[in-house]
Design a protein around this nucleic acid. Structure first.
Lengths: 362, 362
DNA sequence: TAAAATTGCACAACCGATTGTGCTTCTGCG
DNA sequence: CGCAGAAGCACAATCGGTTGTGCAATTTTA
């Protein structure tokens, strides 16, 4: 039933697509309505409507009549007024994506989302929330007033609230990247990814310094209260424990995704340790960028004393003066699976997508 | 008159914003309409409408009545059905941004756009065109069916066609980054930027090799048929001429923005010259990324033989093993000026925004 | 050949807002 | 007191589609 929500498409725009170029520029007159077409075809508006939106069989319009109407509509360059349709059907044909911001990861998601939506002949609406719960609420409220067909939440701050709000407004929805207990969610397998990445970092670590505080891997950035970071910490810890026996609390610094904070944090850490640690697990690309602002200022030989890993894929990460292992999240698959859930279920399931490890050449 | 199009805002959503949290989750019933509110208030629908959308003074509704209605609407958690409003007023409250793809630059634009639109209490619709003129056409067609209020075109492929199409559908529109002869356009001053960047490259060039083919700066990437690249080539050439007297045609390789092509091109060039040239003007961040895939494979000392400049700002560009000068386009200003034009004029003017030069530490 | 079923279509209500118009009631002024 | 004008509001049309229903013409069935 949710399936129909997504797959239901008004064929009129398809039918009318092959309009000769010239005709589209033709009219400066008011846009034509089904009533105009009806008149020209000598039929009623309802017949025209049925012919154009593909329900003519169901409504027992003869094929001949339907074709005649379609032909005329083509010639006139008719296109449907979406508001009118949406008002009557209470389906807008709009599908929304809410992202926290436009960083590389979310932009990739947006790109895929956009393509998938348009492939379904719907209209993508992409809005950034600035990670503000109030803003999230308002946007959903807004979208609800647009009779939005469905909403994709990516990395949202308060998933459960949003899900309740959507359910209340009867809006199908799905969560990506950040899970929700109340709705279908598709997330990267953060634990597994972090495990892989940490193992890779451990494997690439340079020789020990002798200082126990420096001879370990630090986890940097993100917000441990959020599930994604939480699970990455789990995977990180598992790998560390397998390697070193235990994880110290101060090995994990996960309070925020903010770039500036990351710059400060790594600088502080460097100060405390009297140098870089032997391994650094960088959580997310924004933290990567922030941390790099400090790290890039270090002399060449210092950079070789640390094994870097970043949980996010940044193409330029391959081109730095030092190797950086990276985890690439499969944004295409994330989005595609999210569509699948939207179209096939409404129960709260959590699907995990295994990310890829990019191993830097050392 | 166009001004009103953008600045016209229905206050109802403002008025009703401070709804107690609890109430929003209240109803599983059908969404309320002005008729429901009318009944509860003992007033007519038209009075309710006027009270809520702020026209009550003009319609000579007493303040007392208006306040009472607003109060009731608040309590009931009423919100406007945008389709109905749009159908009646033929203004959707939607503003579209068409981008070629979601790279760093366009994502920044999208971010700013999104904020500006929401600040005006409208709804941003961001769609990527994949640089396909047919797709562009269809999208505009679609948007026109949504009674879109206005359209921002960023880096579009066929501006004049699109402008005609919009004019025909009476859609206010503006071009960003890629100018249009028929409509207001806001673009980076590509010529000036390229001039600055080239001068900086020239100033940072390492010692001459003696090989005249290697002892010059090459312009890499982009599509010279597009104005932005064309103007960058102009600025580039001006700087080169001032420095070396003349520009050779084979110094300029500008056929495409594609990443893979860039990788191939720089590899070929490297092969031909038997090494990197002494200076490289890289046109756009995608070309940068593509070129870097090859350049990063080179040994350390080779990298010092070339002065790099990139026309686009990429934070990670600062963190590479070699200095890269960059031009930063002012995306905020571009978008804000575009809004200004949309709100104040409709005549085809071209506004150029001076970009910033980021000088790499050498 | 009449009754039944089916085909082909038109009519009109409806979605939920906005807006032109007009009917009361009230106020002010001569 | 009478009348002009304003104040306060309700009615109904309207935007452009969709959809339930009904009627006539045609075809099928008995």
């Amino acid at each position: 039933m949710l399936q129909s929500i997504m797959s239901f498409v008004h064929p009129v725009n398809h039918i009318l697509k092959n309009v000769p170029e010239g005709l589209l520029f033709m009219s400066n007159k008011q846009k034509e309505t089904i009533y105009d077409i009806a008149q020209k075809a000598g039929a009623s508006a309802s017949t025209v409507s049925a012919a154009l939106n593909g329900t003519w069989k169901k409504r027992r319009i003869s094929e001949k009549t339907a074709q005649r109407i379609i032909q005329i509509a083509r010639e006139q360059g008719y296109t449907t007024n979406n508001q009118a349709r949406a008002l009557r059907t209470s389906r807008s044909g709009l599908v929304a994506l809410l992202v926290p911001e436009y960083n590389r990861f979310f932009s990739n998601i947006a790109q895929t989302f956009s393509q998938e939506v348009r492939a379904r002949n719907l209209c993508p609406v992409i809005i950034s929330t600035e990670r503000d719960p109030k803003e999230e609420r308002h946007i959903v409220e807004d979208l609800s007033n647009w009779q939005i067909d469905s909403i994709f939440f990516v990395g949202s701050v308060s998933p459960e609230d949003l899900s309740r709000q959507c359910k209340d407004a009867q809006i199908p929805h799905v969560f990506v990247d950040q899970p929700c207990a109340l709705a279908p969610s598709v997330v990267t397998d953060n634990r597994a990814g972090a495990l892989m990445l940490t193992q890779q970092i451990l494997a690439s670590m340079p020789a020990a310094t002798g200082d126990p505080l420096r001879d370990r891997v630090y986890f940097l950035g993100g917000d441990r209260r959020l599930p994604s970071t939480y699970n990455r910490i789990e995977g990180f810890s598992e790998a560390i424990r397998a390697h070193a026996g235990s994880v110290a609390p101060d090995q994990i610094i996960a309070r925020t995704y903010a770039k500036d904070a990351a710059t400060q944090t790594i600088a502080d850490l460097y100060g405390q340790l009297g140098g870089l640690p032997r391994g650094l697990f960088i959580n997310s690309d924004s933290v990567f960028e922030g941390a790099m602002r400090f790290i890039a200022t270090l002399p060449e030989d210092e950079l070789q004393t640390c094994a870097f890993g970043c949980f996010d894929y940044e193409p330029f990460g391959q081109l730095l003066r030092f190797p950086v292992h990276m985890i690439r999240q499969r944004h295409k698959k994330l989005v595609q699976r999210a569509f699948w859930h939207l179209e096939h279920t409404t129960t709260p399931v959590l699907e995990q997508i295994e990310p890829e490890l990019y191993r830097a050449k050392t």
